[in-house]
């Protein structure tokens, strides 16, 4: 049941991101709701659910619209792992914490993307990327975080969502 819900969330999100968000650009920036969902999974479910959702969501993005397999998969998985690892050290009662985590995650994701463009030898200006992409995207996504987090918290009231998965320890 949980796997089905997660798959549905990922697919719906990718569809919305590739079809509706291109028309909702503000100053050329679009939000990344996949990051918002991964942060929500990280804060509510912790590890390993968040990196798994990140990996699967990223790979779907790579397959559906990417040109290189693994770019989004790696970024989203690492975001999920980091958020999932430190989530229990924070109070997640309000919307403020998820919004701050979202901003942090967007900076992390775009930092990794800058690194990728560096290795791909693409000519980019880090300053322009920061001003024109990272900051607007972080704000835009953080604004969308409260409704997403509200829905995710409601989803986590169902028992099937709270059943723990573990990284098997030796």
């Amino acid at each position: 049941m949980r796997a089905g819900v997660i798959a549905l969330i990922i697919l719906l999100n990718v569809i919305v991101e590739t079809t509706i968000f291109p028309f909702l650009k503000i100053n050329g920036a679009v939000p990344d709701t996949m990051v918002a969902f991964i942060v929500a999974f990280g804060l509510l479910g912790g590890n390993p659910i968040a990196p798994i959702v990140g990996l699967l969501g990223g790979l779907v993005c790579d397959i559906v619209m990417g040109s290189v397999l693994g770019v989004y998969g790696l970024q989203y998985m690492l975001i999920g792992f980091i958020v999932g690892s430190i989530a229990d050290k924070f109070y997640v009662g309000s919307f403020i914490t998820p919004m701050i985590f979202t901003i942090f995650s967007i900076f992390l994701k775009e930092g990794m993307m800058l690194l990728y463009t560096f290795f791909m030898r693409l000519d980019v200006s880090a300053y322009n990327i920061l001003v024109k992409v990272i900051i607007p995207e972080a704000i835009y996504t953080a604004i969308l975080m409260p409704p997403i987090f509200y829905l995710m918290r409601r989803l986590y009231r169902y028992k099937f969502m709270t059943k723990k998965w573990y990284f098997k320890d030796t």
Binding site: V14, E17, T18, T19, F21, P22, G28, A29, V30, D32, M34, C61, V64, M65, G66, S67, M113, T117, V133, E137
Partner: peptide, 13 residues
């Protein structure tokens, strides 16, 4: 029928 998500690449489907 689609454009790439995110702000980096300019790819259409």
């Amino acid at each position: 029928i689609g454009k790439n998500p995110g702000n980096w690449f300019n790819i259409i489907l």
